[in-house]
Simulated assay, not measured.
Amino acid sequence: MSIYGFSATAMNGQVKSLAEYKGKVVLIVNTAGKCGFTYQYEDMQRLYDRYKDKGFVILGFPCNQFDKQEPDSNEKIQTNCLLNYGVSFPLFQKVKVRDEGAHPLFEYLSHTKPFEGFNKFHPVAKILLPLLNEKHPEYLADDYSIKWNFTKFLIDVDGQVMKRFESTTDPIDMEEDIESLLENVAV
């Protein structure tokens, strides 16, 4: 199985098959506009600008499941991403990424690459970890589900999930992994 068997609704309301991204290196991210990790949009856009002509694409999936940090409408999300962070990579309409009603793509992604823990030394982890332990210990009860906003999955040219990066991994820290997979892209 690969990501190519899934589809999702783009911001314009059109259902898109992820098979449209065959042959590309894909980064799939669940996003939120009012999160301590929202700044990652800027670095993701930098990566997208740097590698889009080499066969790399980022797919953003806004989600409001984590402390309601993405309450806006799809239209407002897209506008905010463009105006505040210059986001030009594809965004999809809001989805659930865990628990009942989770989008099948995120069920697949999270079960393919398990949770391996947060980087406890990341500056935002000092806020996130106590918050999760106090308010949402159920998020940490298994080793596969999405734990927070800006969980990132790196997909190879064949649609296979190669790596999972938690919110405490900044996008720029994934650059070597992206470059390694781009060696297999026929542009």
Rank of each mutant, 00 (worst) to 15 (best):
R46T: 09
F165S: 00
L140F: 08
V57Q: 14
K126H: 12
D99P: 00
M44C: 13
L109C: 05
L132N: 02
Y85K: 12
Y85P: 08
Q40V: 04
M174H: 02
E116D: 01
F61P: 07
F153D: 03
K163Q: 14
M162P: 02
Q45K: 03
G60C: 06
F61G: 08
M174Q: 04
V157C: 13
D72W: 09
H122R: 04
K113M: 03
K96L: 05
G60W: 05
K52C: 05
H111R: 15
Y144E: 03
L59A: 12
Y108E: 07
D142P: 07
F89L: 09
D173W: 01
K68D: 12
F153L: 04
E179F: 01
D49P: 09
F150M: 06
Q69I: 09
P130G: 05
N74P: 04
E183Q: 12
Q40F: 08
D72C: 07
E75F: 10
I178P: 00
S73E: 13
E70N: 13
Q93S: 14
V57I: 13
S145R: 05
P71R: 10
S180H: 15
G101C: 04
V95W: 08
K135E: 14
K96F: 02
D43Y: 02
F165Q: 00
R98S: 03
K113W: 00
D173I: 03
K152P: 08
N133M: 15
P90H: 10
H122Q: 05
I77D: 09
G101Q: 07
K68F: 10
I178E: 01
Q45G: 03
P71L: 11
P130F: 07
V87D: 03
D43C: 01
L83C: 12
K126A: 14
C63L: 10
G159P: 01
F153C: 03
A125L: 01
K120G: 09
G86H: 13
T79Q: 15
F121S: 15
L154F: 01
F121I: 11
I172D: 01
F118Y: 06
G101F: 02
Q93M: 15
M44Y: 15
A125M: 00
S167E: 00
D156R: 09
T168L: 01
D142V: 08
E176D: 07
E138P: 10
S167F: 00
G55W: 06
Y51P: 00
F121D: 14
L131Y: 11
F89G: 06
G55I: 07
K120H: 10
E138D: 15
A102V: 03
L83F: 13
F89E: 07
S180G: 12
D72T: 10
F56D: 07
Q93A: 12
I58H: 04
N149L: 05
Y85G: 07
L47Q: 04
I172K: 04
E107Y: 11
